[in-house]
Design a protein around this nucleic acid. Structure first.
Lengths: 189, 189
DNA sequence: GAAAATGCGTCAACAATGCTGACCAAATTC
DNA sequence: GAATTTGGTCAGCATTGTTGACGCATTTTC
């Protein structure tokens, strides 16, 4: 597909998507282009996500862990002192599924649990040094992948990537992300 | 970390990401900002991909299928007449894993197999009407998600999204994607 | 202060989707 | 005609998700 066509395609998609109102041409062909564009997004997400996770997966496999362990390490590292309930909310899995990876992580000394100060039923989760070290190792691996993609694409593309990815997320994920990005209000509220 | 700091962090990351050029401060701090930026990418990919697939997953669950079935429907639909070997290459899974979803899809009339014309060992895969109908239903569901994200983000962001996602992919995935996007040379080569 | 709700853990069973290893049949290639 | 390639299948295993049902400690509510 020549570059000009891609540009036209974008413009057409945009105009039909609805801001300005230049009446779209042909119609049938335009519909095809739009569909092709969206199918490309499916492809990109499949290949991109798979390869993004591949590096960390390899490290984890050596330790007898899986992607689920990484997620716990990632989000506990991102939000130290998080409660089990909040972690369940972020991951959107069941307590049993989380338990299967969290319990071993605690037993093997990657994660610590501390009783909540205001509510002693809670187990506030944090990474141990060992856990932080592993998380960092996994991060460094993914960092390479992301940095390369960011460098190749350029800063403007990065901003666009962020905007689109945010748009793909549902309400709950956006809320969770907002909380992750504003780590101020943990203890208080 | 006080709220102001988080704001400053985001702003700084933004300015470093690129357009305006106030020279970035400290350096140690700058390294930290870069890391935050990359961790955000991890978050975005996790939440975004999960929610992107959620809609189709729900439809599939009703039919007793999973994401793996969808992938087969998607890529067979995208490349009618694909051989089993090529499909294995695109999905990057084992023959056994593919067989577990492909065989039922054939048996239940979603996918047809035709012996290759030049090489009769091959089974050229295509969607039946039933298969195309299901694939379309799944596509329509994801289309909504993507279209909304694209609309919210704007055409420039879409281009950036594509560039970054491409950058995340490894060599093999890029090659596979290139073949998918240039569906001309199927039979011949 | 008793009752209800909440936070967390656990046992048991099941499903989807990866994997390895082994082996077979048909067709093609050398 | 032997070796290779393409595809299928059986058997077993691991990860990670699911329901459903309890149990315990603690907090909240009446």
């Amino acid at each position: 597909m020549p570059k000009g066509a891609a540009q036209a395609l974008l413009a057409a998609a945009e105009s039909e998507a609805g801001t300005r109102g230049a009446p779209p041409p042909a119609g049938r062909n335009l519909l095809f282009l739009r569909e092709e564009e969206l199918r490309l997004a499916q492809d990109l997400l499949f290949f991109g996500y798979r390869d993004f996770t591949a590096g960390a997966d390899a490290i984890l496999a050596d330790l007898g862990m899986g992607r689920a362990h990484h997620r716990v390490l990632h989000f506990v590292g991102r939000w130290p002192g998080i409660t089990v309930g909040d972690l369940l909310g972020i991951l959107a899995i069941t307590k049993q599924s989380l338990g299967r990876v969290l319990t071993p992580l605690v037993e093997e000394g990657y994660v610590t649990q501390a009783p909540g100060r205001t509510d002693r039923r809670q187990r506030l989760l944090s990474l141990t040094e060992k856990g932080a070290a592993l998380e960092r190792r996994l991060f460094e691996r993914q960092r390479e992948t992301i940095m390369q993609a960011y460098r190749e694409a350029g800063p403007q593309a990065v901003e666009g990537f962020r905007r689109v990815m945010r748009g793909l997320m549902g309400e709950e994920a956006r809320a969770a992300l907002a909380r992750l990005e504003a780590p101020a209000e943990r203890e208080g509220k």
